[in-house]
Design a protein around this nucleic acid. Structure first.
Lengths: 347, 347
DNA sequence: CTTAATAATTGGAACGTTCCAATCTCGTCA
DNA sequence: TGACGAGATTGGAACGTTCCAATTATTAAG
C-alpha cells in the first residue's frame, strides 16, 4: 500500500517542465507563467504529492518551525498560553512544536536539544522550576531567538515577557484592605520561584502601606494546584488568629481554597474573601465567580509569539524585557460583587 | 554571533577520522572502536555540534516524529491525554508534534498536512467535530499509521481507541437509580457527536431497564464546558418536574452543574446528585469530590501511543478498534460517599 | 531586421546526513 | 610465509529540495 514517494521531479516530468519550475510554483513565485502554474498545480493534486520539508530545510537554513516548551501542560494557564502562541504562529505560516517538561529540568534539556536538532527558528520557553542561566547558555549562544515567558531568568540574556506580579498582588490586597479585611493570608505556590517572590512582595507592600504587619505565618506555601490550595487553606485555618481573606498564588490554588472553605461549611465570597491570580477561563464561570488578577494567558501567548516572530524576522535583535500589565477583575469571590449587585437591584 | 554551522565533516576533520565514522558514532553503532568513539564524542562536545535531523530524515525515510492533533487543548481532558502520549512517545526516542485544532476542521486539514510534510511517522488524532472518513482518506492512503482517539470515525479504516461510553453511562445511571433517584437528567454535550450519542444510549438503557421512562426533556445539550454546564442545569431546573440527579456529559459540565446548583443555593451531593464523565485530575480534589466515570485520559494517551508505536514498528498492521474499559468512581457529588462516610464514623 | 530588454524556464551544484561496498590493519592458523 | 577473517574505517553516491547563473522565448524599440 505504501506507494513510492512522489517527488518534485515526478511532478516535473508529468507536467512537462523542469524541477526548478515546480519548485518555483511551490514557493508561489511570481516569476512563473499563470498557465504553467495551473498545470503544475493540477499535476501536484493528481499525483498526491506531499512536500518534503526536510529536504527544503536542508537546503535553506530557515525552518518555519517554532518551538514552545511549557513546564506544566495540565495547568490550564499554560494550555491557554500555548493556544495563544499557536494562533499567531500559525497565521504567520509557522508551525508549532509543543513540548511539556513537567517541571523537570532534565526533560527540559532534552526537549530543547531535540528542537534544536529539528532546526526550530525560534523558541518560546516557560522554564521549569530551578532553570538557571547556565542551562540556557548553549542555546542562546547558538543565536536562535528565544523568549522566556511567565518566569524570567536573571542573566540569561534573552527576551522575556512576564506579568507584573508585584503590581497585581498589590492591587488585589489593597482591594481586600479597602473592603475592611485586616487578617489577609497569602496562600499557595512554591517559595523558591521568582513569581512567588514577586507576588508576595506586592502582598507585603500593600499590607505595609496600610500599616498592617505582615506576619510570616500568614503566607503559606503549597503546590500551585487545586489540591495545594485545599491544604494551604486548611493550614491557614489552624492559626489561632484566623485570616478573613486570602490572595492566592494562582487560580488553581484559589479554586482549591474555595473547596477547602466549603469543606468547613464556609461560603467563599460571603464568609471569606478569596482572590486568585491569572484569570483562567473557568474563573468567570465558577460559582462564586472568582475575583482574580487577570494576566490573560492567551493574550500573553500571542504577545510572546509576536515578539519572537519579530526577532526571527530581524535576525538578531536586542533582548527586551517586557512586563505585561495586569488588572484586577472583581467578581464575586471577594464579596465585593455581591454587595454591588444588591446595590444595583435596590436602585 | 550566529556562528557557522558545524557539520559532521568538521567533526571528522577535527577528530582525524572520516565523516562515515562520525556518523557511526552518532548512531551508537557497535562497529566503532571505543577509543575513537570517545575521541569523536569529545570533539562533538567541544565544537558544540548539533545534529541536523532534516538531513538525516532526507536520507532515511523514517523520522522519529509522531504527531498528535487534539480538538481542544484548553479542555484539560485533552491536555492530559497529550501528556500521556508524550510520556511514552518520548521514552521510545520519538518526539511529539502537538497541534490544536480548536474543533475547526479546516484547521485540522492544515495541521495534518503540515505534519505530513514534516514526515511524521505516525499520527494520533482526536478528530474535530464533524470530521468524516473522506477527510482522512488521503492520509490513510499514504500508509502512515494513524490512531484515532476519543472519537471514532466510521469507515475511516484506521485504528481507534475510544472509551466504553455506553457502559460508563449505564453504570453511572444504575448507581443513581439504586440510590433512589427517579428523575435523572443527562446534561451537556453536543448532540451531533458519536460520544454524546453513546453516553445518552447508556443513560436511556439504564432508565429503561429500571422501568423508568426517558423523557426527551431530561436530556439537555450544551457546550461541553463549565459554562455549558451552568446553562444546562439552569434549563433543567426550569422543568416543572425537576430532576434530582444528573449524569453529565463530562467533568467540565459537571463542575458547571455544581456551580449552577450553588447559585440556586443547592448543595451538590446533598441536595442533588451529580456524576461526571472522564475523571479529570481536579475531580478528586474538588469539593465535593466528583463522582465520575473514570476514563483516565493520561492512561488513554499512553495506550494510544503504544498502539501507534506498535504499528509503526510493524510497518503496516491491521487496524484495531479498541474500546477501553471504564469504571465508575464513587466520590461525594452523588451523595453516596457522604452516607458511607457517616457510616464509617459511626462504626 | 537587429538589438535590447523583459519574461519564463532550466540544468546543475549544494545542503548534511546515511548507506553501501570497498579497503585497510591486524592477529591467527596452517 | 601466506591466506584468511574479523574488526575498523572509509570514499562516494544518494536523499529531495532550493538557489544561482545561464538559457531560451517573447516583445519592444530603433
Amino acid at each position: 500500500m505504501a506507494k513510492e514517494r512522489v517527488t518534485v521531479i515526478d511532478i516535473a516530468r508529468a507536467a512537462g517542465v523542469s524541477k526548478s519550475t515546480v519548485s518555483l510554483v511551490l514557493q508561489g513565485s511570481p516569476l512563473v507563467n499563470e498557465a504553467t502554474r495551473a498545470k503544475v498545480n493540477a499535476v501536484i493534486r493528481e499525483l498526491g504529492y506531499v512536500y518534503n520539508r526536510s529536504a527544503a530545510n536542508l537546503r535553506q537554513a530557515k525552518s518555519k518551525i517554532i518551538g514552545i516548551v511549557v513546564n506544566d501542560l495540565t495547568n490550564s494557564f499554560f494550555a491557554e498560553l500555548a493556544v495563544g502562541v499557536d494562533a499567531v504562529v500559525q497565521s504567520a505560516g509557522f508551525v508549532q512544536f509543543l513540548a511539556n517538561t513537567g517541571e523537570k529540568s532534565e526533560r527540559q534539556r532534552e526537549v530543547i536539544a531535540s528542537m534544536r536538532e529539528h532546526g526550530v527558528s525560534g523558541l518560546i520557553i516557560s522554564p521549569a522550576r530551578g532553570t538557571e542561566a547556565a542551562d540556557l547558555a548553549p542555546l542562546v549562544e547558538s543565536g536562535i531567538p528565544v523568549v522566556l515567558v511567565v518566569r524570567d531568568i536573571a542573566g540569561a540574556g534573552v527576551s522575556s515577557l512576564i506579568s507584573d506580579n508585584r503590581a497585581g498582588a498589590l492591587a488585589a490586597v489593597r482591594h481586600l484592605i479597602a473592603r475592611g479585611h485586616r487578617r489577609i493570608a497569602f496562600l499557595g505556590g512554591f517559595a523558591d520561584t521568582a513569581v512567588f517572590e514577586a507576588r508576595v512582595r506586592g502582598y507585603r507592600d500593600a499590607l505595609r502601606e496600610a500599616g498592617l504587619k505582615a506576619g510570616d505565618d500568614l503566607v503559606v506555601g503549597s503546590a500551585p494546584s487545586r489540591a495545594g490550595g485545599v491544604t494551604a487553606i486548611e493550614q491557614a485555618m489552624m492559626l489561632e488568629d484566623r485570616p478573613t481573606a486570602a490572595l492566592c498564588f494562582n487560580d488553581a490554588v484559589a479554586f482549591g481554597v474555595c473547596d477547602g472553605l466549603r469543606a468547613r461549611r464556609l461560603e467563599p465570597g460571603a464568609d471569606f474573601a478569596v482572590i486568585g491570580f491569572d484569570d483562567v477561563i473557568e474563573a468567570k464561570t465558577a460559582v462564586p465567580a472568582l475575583t482574580t488578577v487577570s494576566v490573560d494567558p492567551q493574550g500573553m501567548g500571542e504577545r510572546a509569539a509576536e515578539l519572537l516572530l519579530k526577532q526571527i524576522k530581524a535576525g538578531r535583535a536586542e533582548p527586551e524585557a517586557i512586563v505585561s500589565p495586569v488588572r484586577l477583575v472583581i467578581r464575586q469571590s471577594c464579596g465585593a460583587a455581591v454587595e454591588r449587585r444588591m446595590k444595583e437591584v435596590s436602585s
